[in-house]
């Protein structure tokens, strides 16, 4: 038990990332507000980045740092487009609730 608490190894970082990923995934699945869903997706990307950096450290390979940097830039671009779409949807219907998007029927 003492080892688990005081001896921080790769497992700790990886499990922390997994917890963040699952929280983000649960957020996407249970929340209905588009902005919260977008934030949850950002959490998932951060979890992936943390995993990437932990493994990068483990393998002594810096190329994953480049990858993580690119992921951050992509996340920024995605957030910009996503927020623009949210604004466009809000302009038409005054809320951004995913459940109330019903103009397209099944």
């Amino acid at each position: 038990m003492g080892d688990l608490v005081f001896d921080i190894g790769y497992g700790h970082f990886l499990v922390l990332a997994a917890v963040l990923f699952v929280i983000g995934m649960a957020g996407v699945l249970i929340r209905r507000n588009a902005l919260i869903i977008l934030m949850s997706v950002e959490l998932m990307l951060n979890a992936a980045n943390m995993t990437l950096l932990a493994f990068s450290r483990m393998w002594g390979d810096l190329s994953a740092h480049t990858f993580a940097l690119i992921v951050i830039a992509v996340a920024a671009a995605e957030a910009a487009v996503g927020l623009a779409i949210v604004v466009a949807v809000f302009r038409g219907r005054r809320n951004v609730d995913v459940d109330r998007l019903t103009a397209l029927r099944h």
Partner: peptide, 13 residues
């Protein structure tokens, strides 16, 4: 666009 974007971003994760 909203549905496509949210699902696509989820898939990216």
């Amino acid at each position: 666009a909203m549905k496509y974007f949210l699902i696509g971003a989820f898939a990216t994760g």
